[in-house]
């Protein structure tokens, strides 16, 4: 196990180097530079712009700068932002917790709802509950995240307020006028979490239902029932564990998608996370911040694949690492 872990962790290094090289190349081959924002500033002459470029080191070829970047990152220095000269690590520290809270709340929301609904639907197959949940899952499967988010804002923030009902805030992480507390924080999370989680909820619900249906037809379930075990013991101890097994891999593979979705949801709800930071930094050619954001996404993705593999082994004793 330890050997496997070490090998996998070592294998991540070339992969991450490959990704960073590709992303750095793409970013820097983009026409435009962080000094573009001085272009229409009458008090900054073209010569000054060249000077600023030189001071930032942007007149060096990009592949030379890449090695400088790698050297610095290896020493734990992510660089400074090209637009407001604050340390990149500081900007990440502000944004990353928000994104993590948003994504993992959505993950938990989707899991907590999808597992019982899926299992109940499989056990009571073709019941009204099963049919309704299947229809809802089919309907939510194709919903565009952006549209869902906007419709929720229209309903819960605009219309509910018009109708004089308790309404939810349309964006941000907390009430900027003060009076911010935990409930206020949660109130700001409800709509984004629902928006981000609902697609996964639909997919997982359907997945658990069908994998549970597969499992309860197996012989060993009949054996367990024939032994006279409690129906609940059979379902929870024998069926559930095997039905959830494939879900672990699926959840692992979906987490990167969740981060991608978080980027969109953050944009719709004006939620100040990594996704919003990525879009802003790309729009302003802020190479160092953009690089850090994309690499964070990449590291999370790669780590997450590893965790999914390890969890899979922990749940299924048949899997052996060597």
């Amino acid at each position: 196990m330890t050997r496997y872990l070490v090998r996998r962790l070592l294998g991540m290094i070339p992969l991450l180097i490959g990704i960073s090289f590709l992303v750095y190349a793409l970013l820097n081959l983009v026409p435009g530079s962080p000094t573009d924002r001085f272009q229409f500033n009458p008090s900054i002459k073209p010569a000054d712009r060249e000077r600023i470029k030189h001071q930032m080191g942007l007149d060096e070829p990009w592949y030379k700068r890449y090695f400088v970047w790698v050297e610095h990152v290896a020493q734990g220095d992510l660089g400074t932002s090209f637009t407001n000269y604050s340390p990149v690590s500081y900007r990440l520290k502000q944004a990353l917790p928000n994104t993590l809270v948003l994504s993992f709340s959505s993950l938990i929301f989707a899991l907590v709802l999808s597992i019982p609904i899926g299992i109940y639907g499989a056990i009571h197959r073709n019941s009204i509950f099963d049919r309704v949940s299947t229809i809802i899952s089919t309907a939510f499967f194709s919903v565009p995240t952006i549209w869902l988010g906007l419709l929720l804002i229209i309903l819960f923030s605009v219309k509910f307020k018009e109708w004089g009902m308790p309404w939810l805030p349309s964006g941000g992480v907390r009430n900027l006028r003060g009076g911010s507390n935990t409930w206020d924080y949660i109130k700001h999370l409800i709509l984004p979490v629902f928006t981000l989680g609902s697609v996964q909820l639909a997919v997982w619900m359907r997945y658990i239902r069908s994998s549970m249906l597969d499992v309860i037809r197996q012989d060993y379930i009949r054996t367990a029932q024939a032994k006279g075990l409690h129906e609940r013991t059979v379902l929870m101890a024998h069926a559930f564990r095997n039905a959830v097994l494939p879900l672990v891999t699926l959840v692992g593979l979906t987490i990167p998608e969740l981060f991608g979705g978080a980027l969109i949801v953050e944009n719709v709800f004006g939620y100040p996370g990594i996704g919003q930071l990525t879009i802003d930094s790309l729009n302003t050619n802020d190479y160092s911040v953009a690089m850090a954001c994309v690499m964070i996404f990449a590291v999370l993705t790669v780590l997450d694949n590893l965790i999914a593999d390890i969890l899979y082994g922990a749940i299924d004793p048949r899997v052996r690492y060597d």
Binding site: V23, L26, V294, F297
Partner: peptide
Amino acid sequence: ISIPGITL
């Protein structure tokens, strides 16, 4: 595949 699609 390891780079989240939307950022790339």
